[in-house]
């Protein structure tokens, strides 16, 4: 009797030991970690709009933005290719959440600077978060000579401010969307009809077509009775092409300006009339310092 009990106990223990041996790694109760979702967009811009993405810390992103003239100018102007406006800029990632950027546009000789901060990062794993939230604030200074030099021109009249909340999600491996409530403040507007504060809702999406090519669309809806009737909502459609350290963004847009206050509140082109710019952004990254660990 005692013997059989012993044998039973023995068998039980060896059975335990055996099951433990079947999958060694299951012995380690692995803790789940929080994984942040990355690469919802290829760069920190959708086309004109700020995207959900930040420049990584220590990375300098040199951006050259180009918009040719309107396509409907015809063959004489080579469909707009004879004219161009340009923005040369540099973005720098400071931390995992904070980045800064500067730029200078030929359009109205404007200098601009912005700060973008990630408040919430989409994540999976231990801490699940289905969306990301960023805030962006930018300032622009128009350095073009005043149109009417005889009147008193204050420096503050050259200043523009934009505040933007960026909410979005990488819904699947290839598809991301975002919505950005935006406020543009213009210290000086040209007519009484126009509001100094312009509120707009911007929406954007990207669909990856291949690993290195994606289709991007963005549309900015300006709430009624704030801008000139002749102005239009900005609509841009383009492709992101990635080759190693470069991202080429080729697109069609009805906005001439490449900075927030311009493409949100001062877009004049009408898509249906063919007031479309062909344009591109080239982004080239340089690693200035290593990643914090």
């Amino acid at each position: 009797m005692r013997k059989s009990v012993l044998i039973a106990i023995n068998l039980l223990f060896s059975a335990l030991a055996l099951t433990a041996q079947e999958d060694l790694l299951s012995l380690l109760n692995e803790e789940e970690e929080t994984e942040y979702v990355s690469a919802s967009f290829k760069t920190n811009r959708v086309i004109n709009l700020q995207s959900l993405e930040n420049t990584a810390p220590g990375v300098l992103d040199i951006k050259i933005g180009h918009r040719f003239g309107f396509i409907n100018q015809g063959a004489y102007e080579l469909f707009g290719l004879d004219n161009a406006t340009i923005r040369i800029g540099a973005d720098l990632g400071l931390t995992n959440r904070l980045m800064v950027g500067f730029g200078r546009s030929s359009f109205e000789k404007t200098y601009d600077g912005f700060l973008k901060y990630r408040l919430i990062r989409q994540s999976t794993g231990k801490r699940k978060m289905p969306f990301s939230v960023s805030v962006m604030a930018s300032t622009a200074i128009r350095s073009e000579k005043p149109r009417d030099p005889d009147r008193e021109n204050y420096f503050s009249s050259r200043m523009f401010y934009t505040f933007q909340l960026i909410l979005g999600s990488k819904i699947s491996e290839g598809f991301s969307i975002q919505v950005s409530p935006t406020l543009v403040h213009r210290n000086l507007v040209s007519t009484l009809e126009e509001e100094n504060d312009v509120i707009a809702i911007a929406a954007a999406a990207r669909q990856k077509l291949t690993k290195r090519l994606s289709l991007n669309v963005e549309y900015i809806y300006v709430l009624p009775d704030q801008i000139l009737d002749s102005n239009e909502n900005s609509l841009s459609i383009g492709f992101d092409i990635e080759t190693g350290g470069h991202v080429f963004q080729l697109h069609f847009t009805n906005s001439t300006s490449m900075i927030d206050k311009g493409f949100v509140a001062e877009t004049t082109g009408n898509w249906l009339d063919g007031d479309i710019h062909f344009g591109f952004n080239i982004s080239r990254v340089f690693t200035l310092w290593g990643r914090e660990e």
């Binding site: 990584a56 990375v59 990643r291």
Partner: peptide, 17 residues
């Protein structure tokens, strides 16, 4: 995802592409 590179872009490409 726990592989870390000197350049952030390399890490993105490694994971994404």
């Amino acid at each position: 995802k726990s592989f870390h590179f000197a350049k952030a872009l390399m890490e993105d490409h490694f994971n994404e592409n």
